[in-house]
């Protein structure tokens, strides 16, 4: 019974990690670099959800909408100010790192300017947890899981079945060839940033519901990164599997050793994974181009 309880809590946690990991992997897939501004973007979107919607007494749905829209818009802005020139001028990919780190500093700096070091809480959107056959299932967990699953399914459908999805896949495969085939590469990359930003916004709200809102909450993005390393860097299904695995592992670990040491153990798990199977679960290892 206890194991089942961990499983339920783990899946709920894992679904938020999955949102983070897919948002991160999406950009990694298309541009082959790690977007380190993803965490700060979650923070910024979650706070805008608080100040525009939840703080004014609006409900869950408007809060989510505001955060998702903010995430998408800010992500698009980031693409324009930090990455566009590197792409068009074919500057060394090293600059993607610098740009994304700088953007992260910028987003977090803006949040700190507004809220200082204070903690904020979303109002309680949900009632008491359900009790089903001796198991506690928080209402928030159910809602979070359902919305996350719906968002990820929508993303999967978009990538596999739509024209934009096809464009995204061919740009991921080879930017130059895609451009020769008449695909609007810039538009496609912008689209990837919008979707990634929207996912960051959604994840931000959920993190805010699960924990509290604070300026450095973006560092939870590490869990998403670890999930995508475990799953195989750049693979979307891998990211989701890795996230679920990490969520379940973490809830189990926390119940055994307490929440304080859990980050240490998840880090050790990642190290071991890299030593044993550096390609990750999905097994696609993206090498730097020969």
């Amino acid at each position: 019974m206890q194991i089942l309880q961990y499983l339920i809590n783990g899946i709920a946690l894992g679904s938020v990690y999955a949102l983070i990991a897919t948002g991160f992997s999406l950009i990694f897939n298309v541009l082959k670099f790690s977007n380190f501004s993803h965490g700060a973007l979650m923070t910024l979107s979650a706070f805008s959800g608080y100040f525009i919607a939840a703080g004014n007494g609006w409900g869950l749905v408007p809060t989510i909408l505001v955060s998702v829209l903010t995430g998408a818009a800010v992500s698009l802005f980031g693409e324009f100010v930090a990455f566009r020139r590197i792409l068009t001028h074919n500057t060394s990919p090293v600059y993607f790192f610098v740009s994304s780190i700088t953007l992260g500093t910028l987003y977090e700096g803006i949040v700190v300017l507004k809220v200082g070091a204070n903690f904020y809480n979303y109002p309680r959107f949900f009632g008491k947890p359900y009790r089903i056959a001796g198991l506690f299932v928080a209402r928030s967990d159910i809602i979070i899981f359902c919305i996350s699953a719906a968002a990820l399914l929508l993303l999967a459908y978009m990538i596999r079945k739509t024209k934009t999805g096809r464009a995204l896949r061919s740009v991921s495969f080879d930017r130059d060839t895609a451009s020769l085939m008449g695909i609007n590469v810039t538009r496609t990359i912008q689209f990837a940033f919008i979707v990634s930003g929207a996912l960051a916004g959604l994840a931000g709200v959920f993190l805010g519901i699960n924990y509290t809102l604070y300026p450095t909450m973006g560092s939870i993005v590490v869990k998403g990164f670890i999930a995508s390393v475990i799953g195989g860097l750049g693979s979307l299904p891998g990211a989701i599997i890795g996230a679920m695995l990490l969520g379940i592992l973490e809830t189990t670990l926390i119940s055994i050793i307490g929440s304080g040491y859990a980050p240490v153990f998840t880090f050790v798990i990642m190290l071991v994974f890299l030593l044993v199977r550096p390609r990750g679960i999905a097994g696609s290892n993206i090498q730097e181009k020969a």
Binding site: F28, S34, F225, V229, L233
Partner: peptide, 19 residues
Amino acid sequence: LRRDYISLVTLGFGEAITA
């Protein structure tokens, strides 16, 4: 491994040390 890994791993390491 490719460059991204050392960034991701050190980021996780930083969180672990803080914890």
